[in-house]
């Protein structure tokens, strides 16, 4: 059977590029678990912001399989080395995404507004001093500033602008990022959300959150609280009428 995810032995690497790690695997596992929905969703444009080594975008192309011919894949990274590594990783897997070296989606925002059906983001979420944020090279893969939220908070409005009416966003967060507050912020923009995967590693507690536009969202009961040990209260749904 054809592999549905990128293979480590085919991954390219570079000293200035973050290798796939627990967070990348968690995001890909969350996408795999949601694969049937993704196929059903028939996305025309899928985008990854911050593609790093290319593990996630390559896996997304592979898991959509034959359906991927009906889809345009775009991946960006602020680190030119990362985009170069993604290019090699994709070539090694025999698949293609359009790559752009840029800060989040700068240069794409005007023309791609309202067009992205699936966006995946594994942002730099590690709490660090603010001056470490936005530097070139490998630090851009993790340095997240105060509470690890500096870059996430820049990405969310861009995602809101780019996502189509049926657009879905998958976002990797850490407990320290205050995921419930992120959900609340997105809810004010009209998004329902659900924690699609939780995983505690030796170092961190990861939550993969899926967001989708939902006009009924603001009528829903309060969002679940997420405790520091990684368990969520309630059923983890922040949904309105539809649930993905």
């Amino acid at each position: 059977m054809l592999s549905r995810t990128a293979q480590i032995r085919l991954m390219s690497s570079h000293p200035e590029v973050y290798d796939p790690c627990d967070d990348s695997f968690a995001l890909v596992d969350a996408l795999l678990a949601d694969r049937a929905n993704l196929v059903e969703h028939h996305p025309s444009i899928c985008m990854e912001v911050g593609c790093g080594s290319g593990y996630v975008i390559t896996s997304l192309v592979l898991m959509l399989g034959e359906d991927s011919t009906g889809c345009h894949f775009i991946a960006t990274d602020i680190n030119p080395h990362a985009v170069g590594v993604t290019r090699k990783t994709m070539e090694a897997h025999g698949c293609h995404a359009e790559l752009v070296t840029t800060d989040i989606a700068s240069g794409l925002e005007m023309r791609l507004a309202g067009s992205v059906d699936v966006m995946v983001v594994n942002p730099p979420y590690v709490p660090t001093p603010e001056y470490e944020v936005g530097q070139f090279g490998i630090a851009s893969a993790w340095a997240g500033g105060e509470n690890g939220r500096s870059v996430i908070d820049k990405i969310l409005p861009v995602a809101d602008k780019l996502l189509s009416d049926k657009g879905w966003l998958y976002l990797v967060t850490l407990t320290a990022n205050n995921p419930s507050e992120i959900c609340l912020q997105m809810r004010k923009k009209g998004y329902a959300s659900r924690i699609v995967l939780q995983r505690s590693t030796e170092e961190e507690s990861l939550h993969i959150i899926k967001f989708w536009r939902d006009l009924d969202t603001q009528l829903e009961p309060p969002i679940p609280t997420i405790t520091p040990n990684g368990s969520s209260g309630g059923n983890g749904f922040l949904g309105g009428g539809r649930n993905y």
Binding site: P80, G84, R87, V100, T101, D103, S106, G107
Partner: peptide, 13 residues
Amino acid sequence: KFPVNKGIPNMLL
């Protein structure tokens, strides 16, 4: 000018 190398446009400012 925004360079395009190996098929990748660089839009960094």
